[in-house]
């Protein structure tokens, strides 16, 4: 039995929650409305800004007659593959650094420099080395892998020394420590890294598409800019936003699943 006061408290909480969601939607609606009106009444030049109603109609057009969905799918797939490659290779390298303190010490300054280097600068190199298709993956991985290494490695370091001491007291080998403690204890860090990587890899993929590709949302945006079709550019950007929201949602689902399965907090 809950008390009246508590019921009341819950009711207030719920109302507040509803208000937040409602306000969120209103912000979006107000923005779209203002945009539409500004374009209609000539406050801004619709040639430069396009307008929501036009976006909607050209979205319909592009989606059903054009290849918008195919381009979105391509970008999404490239991002997914990029994330998986970065996570795998990044984790393997982080494990190697944990395994050999010597290697990690030797390579530390290089990692720092590579992390600071603007990866876009490598674009032409990837293009020449990997060709127009694979250079996109090159860019995506280049942007996210160093962060992956750093985040996973710092996760390893956060695992308490005494947990490993416990393993050591049973005479555990390094492989056993890795399998029984390091990897399972790092699951929250993997999820956090994944969240960061969704954004970074998408940046890498779009950047790669800007530079070289013949398909994908990045290509559409560049193309739209070149033929001065702001509507195409805006629709593509909207699809990008949608895509990142979906990827982020997937990671959140993954997190909820992992949390239930591995009982971690935070």
């Amino acid at each position: 039995m809950s008390s009246r006061l508590y019921d009341n408290y819950l009711k207030v909480q719920k109302r507040r929650q509803r208000l937040i969601v409602l306000s969120r939607l209103s912000v979006l609606a107000a923005f779209l409305l203002l945009w539409e009106l500004a374009a209609r009444w000539g406050w801004v030049d619709p040639m430069l800004t396009s307008k929501p109603s036009q976006l909607l109609s050209s979205f319909r057009e592009l989606a059903f007659e054009g290849n918008l969905l195919r381009h979105t799918w391509i970008t999404g797939l490239e991002t997914l593959v990029g994330i998986i490659i970065s996570m795998l290779i990044g984790t393997v390298i982080a494990v190697l650094f944990w395994w050999s303190t010597f290697a990690s010490k030797v390579l530390e300054p290089y990692i720092v420099v590579l992390n600071a280097l603007p990866k876009v600068a490598l674009g032409p190199i990837f293009y020449i080395w990997l060709g127009d298709r694979y250079s996109i993956y090159g860019m995506a991985v280049a942007i996210s892998i160093i962060v992956t290494i750093i985040m996973v490695e710092s996760g390893f370091k956060e695992i308490s020394k005494t947990k490993l001491k416990l393993m050591e007291s049973f005479g555990a080998s390094k492989i056993q420590m890795l399998r029984m403690v390091l990897l399972p204890a790092s699951i929250p860090h993997f999820i956090a890294t994944l969240k960061v990587n969704v954004g970074l890899t998408l940046v890498g993929v779009v950047m790669g598409e800007f530079l070289s590709s013949k398909a994908g949302l990045g290509y559409l945006i560049i193309y739209g800019g070149q033929v001065f079709q702001m509507t195409l550019v805006m629709v593509s950007i909207t699809m990008l936003a949608l895509l990142s929201a979906i990827l982020y949602g997937v990671v959140n689902l993954l997190e909820r699943y992992a949390r239930r399965k591995y009982h971690y907090e935070g």
Partner: peptide, 30 residues
């Protein structure tokens, strides 16, 4: 380290990703 010796530390360091029963098997597994 020897099988004859068991070590108990200040903090229990139970693994959150294992249930109680599976935590008990850690030493035997290693």
């Amino acid at each position: 380290t020897s099988r004859k010796v068991g070590y108990m530390l200040q903090h229990d360091h139970l693994f959150e990703w294992r249930n109680v029963f599976n935590n008990l098997l850690v030493g035997a597994e290693i």
